[in-house]
Design a protein around this nucleic acid. Structure first.
Lengths: 204, 204
DNA sequence: TTCATGTAACCTACTAGTAGGTAGACAGCC
DNA sequence: GGCTGTCTACCTACTAGTAGGTTACATGAA
């Protein structure tokens, strides 16, 4: 399999943004990883924001594709959420992608060029819209028991996933991500269907 | 009221870290805000990480002080959580502190000097420990209904608060913070005591 | 077939500007 | 006199980005 230089540049930039953020990496870092000169990066991506936008847009396209296949497919809402959180759990555990690119960029939003910033915002709209749809379906079929509107619950769930990534990074412990999202998923499930987790231990 | 140059430097650095992150601000930015030369900053804080540590340590000291007074005081666990989230809601709404310093730094953790990184981690331990205590008390007195262990619920609640900050920034809308944490608080309250929020609208 | 032309991809060498940090002088105060 | 705080002036390393040249390969005409 031959990967083009352009794709290697995007992959390298993604990895660097995930670990160090937009303001934490330079063309020199990418050049080092991909083993080309800095000028060659400028040939493919005139400015730093063009490179970062390519990373975000590729991620968005992938998510759109995957959620489309999930929506049309054979998975119930609970399985869909578990596949989403499971994806990140795996990425964080094996350190292949220790943070969502858009999440990292969102924290730096006030410092980003305008065009990149609006791409990042678009990702969050995409994601919360998808979550709202999944939660709505789950509530209708009785698999989920929502306490607020589907919109509120979607924003809340999304916040918890991103907060869990931050916590995993803060504690330097990938397991914490899985523990937090498990708590969040569990809350969506009606109490009659919910099986007590082995670690469960009310009020300590 | 006279504020020392040293304190002005810390305040300026705090504000810059909250909005731009550790890698997004420079001594030149601080010098500009405080109206001193860069060399004067180096006199008070030899290195950039010393300045950032001073910011984090001052924040931690403030939190320790406030939680101590809350714990010993006249507020029940629910009120304590509302005061904590309300503090951030106000800060984000009036843009005086659009993000927790430690949260911002945590996202950049892999790029931080080791001593600063461990200060940031200490903040998260402090905070989750306090939350665990408050949730435990609330569960014992019947004000809260926990679904996992107090530890799990504390991590989960903390993740949601930080995720809510990120969401508010991503959407460029301070209100989203309040909406998310309201959903989270509501979930802790036993369903018999819970009053339906005006916006509540099950499954859309 | 061969030779000009075009162009994509990459290079070396450079720019202006900014990063964090240092040396040393000076002023005011205990 | 020594200490604190501030300054000017400077340093080296690095930043994103540019100028201009080299290679390799495709196209198309003589």
């Amino acid at each position: 399999m031959t990967t083009t230089t352009q794709q290697k540049l995007i992959d390298s930039a993604r990895h660097l943004i995930q670990t160090r953020g937009y303001n934490g990496f330079s063309y020199a870092d990418v050049a080092e990883e991909v083993q080309v000169r800095k000028a060659s990066i400028h040939h493919h991506f005139p400015g730093k924001s063009d490179l970062a936008r390519a990373v975000v847009e590729q991620s968005r396209a992938l998510i759109v594709e995957q959620t489309r296949s999930l929506n049309g497919g054979a998975f119930d809402p609970e399985e869909q959420l578990r596949m989403y959180t499971g994806y990140w759990e795996k990425c964080i555990a094996d350190a292949s992608a220790p943070f969502c690119v858009a999440g990292m960029l969102a924290s730096e939003l006030p410092t980003l060029p305008a065009d990149l910033a609006s791409d990042v915002q678009a990702h969050f709209r995409d994601l919360s819209t998808w979550l709202e749809i999944v939660l709505t379906r789950g509530a209708q079929s009785g698999r989920f028991e929502l306490q607020g509107s589907a919109r509120q619950e979607a924003e809340s769930f999304m916040a918890m996933v991103y907060g869990a990534m931050l916590a995993a990074r803060a504690y330097g412990d990938p397991k914490i991500f899985g523990e937090i999202v498990a708590t969040g998923l569990n809350r969506l499930i009606p109490s009659k269907r919910r099986k007590a987790s082995p670690k469960e231990n009310r009020g300590k």
